[in-house]
Design a binder for these strands. Structure first.
Lengths: 340, 340
DNA sequence: GAGCGGAAGTTATACGTAACACTCGGGGCG
DNA sequence: CGCCCCGAGTGTTACGTATAACTTCCGCTC
């Protein structure tokens, strides 16, 4: 009789089924075709079920030298966006029998800045979103397979990269506003040192530069509604002609821009157009609803995880940016005729 | 010379330092006072650093029979609220050398409905938020220590429970609205079978019943802005006197209520007051800003993790609900005098 | 000078699993 | 008739760690 105080092991199952532990391992590991008879296999399965046997993961991981667990590193988990990324990544991982451990980046989690101290689990690989450089180097210290999300492809030579085609999203925004007739545009930029935000600024600048007679100004704000409101209010009250449209790096910043406009007595979109980027729930909660760039966060997470799993199997990850789509809602309109 | 192809083990460190593997384990495990000389200990530390040795977590977990990893089960990770819970829980866990694996509830993750299949990691305990009953029973199947978040204390006899005092929040909302003079109130309720939502309805009902002359109606909606808008619009256009205030189970529902009011030509708060619950970023993005009940999600996660760690150490978890606070903003005002 | 206790280690073992190497009997085939 | 192969298993080992049990040496006390 097996000791009931502790969890049953494969040896307990073997004893109950009258076979050796090795046979149990073969049957439960589905490696028994041609090695164990169907009758014996069934006896083993019955015994396992009767004892409610669950393999000891730690022992299996030690034996196999891999853990079927990967780490997902994301910036502090404040928005729905990364919740979506996680959901997509975890779904794909689960389909392949992998688990996902989350590490929201350095700020605010643990005393140890090392992701691997925080994630106690033994890991097979890492999926890392754009993040602080120190966490990145800590990760590279280990030799784990790494796939980067939303990062400068040229900056991580060793690692595969999966990106949203945000540059194209910015192009769509710029073309939309230019098409409506806007020429004086304010870029409300995230005050975060990250490749993805720098890329947005770069793309917007070059796109607007291609159309003569445009003026681009920039205001920087932390990614919070009130921070954005303050920055936008300051930018809109500087001397000189007022911009007719605000391009925001992010939907949260756009919400701040709405509040700034409201305080200044400007109406969206009649007096000023506003665009966002992300398409969070926030975007449709605003009045008027926000014209923004829809990012498919779950698809992003799925693609990232597929790439990582490919790397883990020694294959080449498929590349190619994920398309994004401008969603026209009520926050953009032609500018008022300013001199006619 | 150690093989450079594979990660160094404690034996490699021992060899490099000229000691036994046991000595390495003692030194690195900080159990060497009086067992190893300071000079030898330093030699071991040097060797470990030189080889960039990291202990094999799987082996340690197997040896020790515990993993310093716990599972956090949350409803599908769609809101900032559970991001906050995770952040708080992970912070406390990290401070105690624990890691946290996330399992967002059944919908949408994996083919296996079993949380333990998805979370590949071997676990020491579970912190589980209110969730679908099937996931719950799967968890109880294992004999892991369990702490419940935001759940019926009487329903899980074996497990400790950590709750936000949402009933008090609802009381504060009800008293605020009654104090303003509202008597016809619509409850926009989440259409989700969960203890926490049922408790809200119960509390609101009893609180209003204590004041004569009040009328409470209820509309149910899925937790999404558009779902809430539809439900609220239907409720507000039913024949009979229109409610003067809407109590929403959740800020997202409140955003839907705003949209419904706007479509019907009702102004918030002049024509109708609206309250939420959660205090998400959304609450201050709305115009007017939402009067809502502030929940401290991170504190909630911290308390939950503290309770679980206490259970794991064989101590009694501290109990007591976490206080919540009504935040007055611009979405509530006295009703228009309806018959004067 | 015998004995004892403590410092400074070492040796050996177990944790639970997966898989390699082996055994044993029977049947097909040359 | 001898050989080989195949089905159906079993015995054994190793993964890397933590720790209990043991050894050795030395200084002290009685």
């Amino acid at each position: 009789m097996a000791r009931s105080s502790t969890r049953p092991t494969s040896r307990d199952v073997a004893h109950a089924a009258g076979v050796s532990q090795a046979a149990v391992s073969l049957v439960l590991g589905d490696k028994w075709r041609g090695r164990v008879s169907e009758a014996t296999a069934e006896r083993v399965r019955q015994a396992a079920r009767a004892l409610d046997y669950r393999p000891n993961l730690a022992a299996r991981n030690l034996r196999l030298g891999r853990t079927r667990t990967v780490l997902l590193v994301v910036p502090a988990l404040t928005t729905e966006f990364f919740a979506g990324v996680y959901t997509g990544a975890a779904r794909v991982a689960a389909q392949h029998g992998f688990g996902v451990v989350l590490y929201p980046s350095p700020e605010g989690i643990g005393p140890a800045r090392d992701p691997f101290a925080s994630a106690q689990a033994a890991l097979d690989g890492v999926l890392a979103s754009s993040m602080a450089a120190d966490a990145l180097t800590a990760i590279r210290g280990d030799r784990l397979p790494l796939v980067m999300l939303d990062s400068d492809p040229t900056a991580s030579p060793g690692a595969a990269t999966v990106n949203l085609d945000i540059a194209d999203g910015i192009r769509q925004v710029a073309d939309h506003l230019l098409g409506l007739g806007h020429r004086r545009i304010l870029h409300l930029a995230a005050d975060v040192p990250s490749w993805t935000f720098e890329a947005r600024a770069r793309e917007l600048t070059t796109r607007l530069a291609a159309t003569p007679g445009t003026e681009l100004s920039t205001a920087r704000a932390p990614i919070s509604i009130d921070g954005a409101r303050t920055a936008a209010e300051a930018a809109l009250t500087t001397p000189g002609p007022c911009p007719t449209a605000i391009v925001c790096d992010d939907d949260k910043l756009a919400a701040g821009a709405y509040k700034a406009a409201r305080r200044l007595g400007l109406r969206v979109p009649d007096d000023i157009s506003v665009t966002g980027l992300d398409d969070l729930a926030l975007a449709t909660a605003l009045d008027p609803e926000l014209t923004t760039v829809h990012l498919d966060a779950e698809l992003f997470g799925e693609r990232g995880m597929h790439a990582l799993l490919a790397v883990l199997e020694g294959n080449e990850p498929t590349s190619g940016d994920i398309p994004v789509q401008l969603v026209l809602r009520g926050s953009t309109a032609p500018p008022r005729t300013h001199q006619g």
